[in-house]
């Protein structure tokens, strides 16, 4: 495939490979990934479990280092970024919404403690993600899974990232909350031009929010097309089976 110039992309993968060593064998999780993600776009990553989607996200934040290949973030080789600055610019929201021990407010103020950023009004941040400001004083242990997930999103947004990596962030939410979070993220993307890279297991969600969709399977990027095209005319047999729900 033809890749754009790195400076035109939010993220560019060039021949990225990643393997993990286990007791007596090596598992290749990502196999020669090539692809562009445009600035300000919403890309949904879909594929069966274990296809390498979450690993691909973690590479963008340098929580995992690629074995081979080049990875460019906003036109700059990932290794030439000061690491803490890169991670501020490329925010990630994890599926399990890990929390810092303390109150919701303490979690919300993480960016302020780490970087001295003015996070603005905590009540506004809470409302922005659909949480009541009365929860600010509650210990995170007392929050539900869905509340933690929203709080995690607000905490990452407080860091003012340019690229936002979302790892199945709505899997713990009820259907109406899922729609609310989707609307919120679409709004943020529209207003702030934050690039969203969104891993999801929900086909309908991938269709609703995505502009581009990447289909991964067994560590390989099998399709990389506009979301509408991907779902209407999948080009590989694997993608067809996956869309039909025949692959898990």
């Amino acid at each position: 495939m033809t890749l754009s110039h790195p400076s035109a992309c939010a993220v560019q993968f060039q021949h990225i490979t990643k393997s993990f060593a286990h007791a007596n064998h090596t598992v290749t999780v990502l196999d020669r990934i090539d692809g562009d993600i445009k600035q300000g776009s919403i890309t949904t990553l879909v594929g069966p479990s274990g296809s390498g989607k979450s690993t691909l996200l973690s590479l963008c934040n340098l929580l995992i280092t690629p074995d081979t290949g080049q990875l460019y973030i906003q036109g700059k080789d990932i290794h030439s970024w000061p690491i803490t600055e890169l991670r501020r610019n490329v925010g990630i929201v994890f599926q399990d919404a890990p929390m810092v021990q303390g109150t919701a407010l303490y979690n919300l103020q993480t960016a302020q403690r780490l970087h001295g950023i003015d996070i603005g009004n905590p009540e506004t941040l809470m409302e922005q993600v659909g949480l009541s400001s009365s929860l600010l004083t509650q210990h995170v242990q007392d929050l539900s899974g869905g509340q933690k997930q929203r709080l995690a999103l607000a905490r990452t947004l407080a860091n003012q990232p340019q690229i936002l990596l979302l790892d199945e962030i709505t899997s713990a939410l009820d259907p109406s909350s899922v729609r609310e979070v989707e609307q919120l993220l679409l709004e943020i993307n529209r207003e702030s031009r934050i690039t969203l890279i969104w891993v999801t297991h929900q086909m309908e969600q991938a269709q609703r929010v995505g502009q581009e969709t990447w289909f991964l399977m067994n560590g390989q990027l099998l399709e990389q097309r506009s979301t509408a095209d991907f779902f209407a005319h999948p080009q590989t047999e694997e993608a067809r089976q996956f869309i039909k729900g025949e692959l898990q």
């Binding site: 991670r87 970087h115 990452t156």
Partner: peptide
Amino acid sequence: LRQREIILLLSLGGTPRQAIMP
């Protein structure tokens, strides 16, 4: 026990020192 918390702080741009201090 707190591995995810350490990774979280790193992912938000915290230095290793900031992430491990708690």
